[in-house]
Computed example of a mutant assay.
Amino acid sequence: MQRVRKLPTLCLLHVGKTGGTYLRNLAREDAYKQRNIVRCIHGDTLETTAQQYGDNRKLAFSFRDPAERFVSAFYSRQRQGRPRYQATWTPGEAIAFKYFETPQQILSDLKSCSEVAKSAAHFALAHIQHIKLGYVHYFHSATRLLLEHQSGNILLCIETPKISMNLLQISTALRDLPINPSSDNLHANPLDVEQLDESAHSTMRDHFGQEYKIFEAARQVAKDIGFA
């Protein structure tokens, strides 16, 4: 009797505030298991998945512009995940949200002449979930991400706004996963939240340079594998 060769584990990374929950819920749990697809938690990274499943494990993930992700992360945690979740603030988050009402304020204070304000901004960046776990956490560097691509390990890499319009292609990339898309909105923040001004965008690019390098690398990977 011929033995069926098991497919390498496909790790669906859960990069916070990029539509990862939507991707995780495209199908029933058993459909993922049948295809040896592991739905990772927020702590999982390129490094931890390689350690657990081997260097030949495959990868799938979504990504978005760092500034959009920053705004989404701030307001999501300010709401404690509601209405979808009820994730109570950590002590650090409680302090951060007592001090800051908008993401714009954090970025403004990063350039403040006041050492107190600047320290508070750095504290918030280090304690607000999803902001503290940025692309550097998940992918380490643009070079590491591109090496995974060159090794043929990335099967799905898609920018958040393109998810809902490419479900058939996503299904194929996820080993013909029989998807049953949710009606949940990918962008859970209310439409009237304050967006970043040009000064804040400039601060983002200055302070989160590595995040933008990884973002651009992910865009290149998406283009190469047909998800641009």
Results as ranks from 00 to 15, higher is better:
H187W: 01
A31D: 15
H42F: 02
I158W: 00
R28I: 03
P8Q: 09
A120Y: 12
Q52E: 15
F61C: 06
G43P: 05
F97M: 07
K213A: 15
G43L: 07
K6M: 13
E159I: 01
S171H: 02
K58P: 03
L23C: 15
T9S: 07
T143Q: 14
A94H: 09
H137S: 05
A222F: 00
A94V: 10
E148Q: 08
P8M: 00
N180K: 11
G20H: 01
G226K: 00
Q2R: 15
R5S: 13
T88I: 15
S112C: 04
K213T: 06
L167V: 02
R205N: 03
Y32G: 04
D176Q: 13
L146H: 10
V4F: 06
E194Y: 04
L13E: 06
F70I: 01
S76Q: 09
M1K: 09
L10G: 08
L12G: 10
N166L: 01
Y75R: 08
S108W: 04
P178R: 04
R84H: 07
S183T: 11
P190N: 08
K6D: 14
I225V: 13
P83K: 04
A124L: 01
D192K: 00
G92S: 11
Q195F: 10
L23I: 05
D197V: 08
A94T: 13
M165I: 09
G81M: 07
L155E: 05
T48F: 01
A126R: 13
R77C: 09
A142R: 01
F97W: 06
S151D: 15
M204T: 02
D184P: 01
N25E: 14
A60K: 02
A228I: 04
T48Q: 01
S62E: 06
A124C: 00
T49M: 09
D44C: 02
R82Q: 13
R35L: 05
Y99G: 02
L46I: 11
V15C: 03
R219K: 12
L12N: 08
L110D: 00
V15W: 00
V193N: 03
A31P: 03
A120Q: 10
Q2M: 14
S72T: 15
Q104C: 11
L110C: 03
Q150N: 13
K6V: 11
R28S: 10
L168W: 02
K213P: 07
Y138M: 05
R5V: 11
I214M: 12
C157L: 10
L167G: 11
I158K: 08
Q52C: 13
K17I: 12
S141F: 00
R79Q: 04
L133E: 15
V116F: 13
H122F: 04
Q86P: 03
Y212K: 00
N189K: 10
E159H: 01
L186F: 00
K223E: 15
G20L: 06
R205K: 14
N180I: 07
S164D: 07
V4K: 03
P190F: 01
T102Y: 00
R69C: 12
L110R: 00
F208K: 12
L155D: 06
E101N: 13
F97D: 01
T48V: 06
H140W: 08
L191G: 09
Y22H: 14
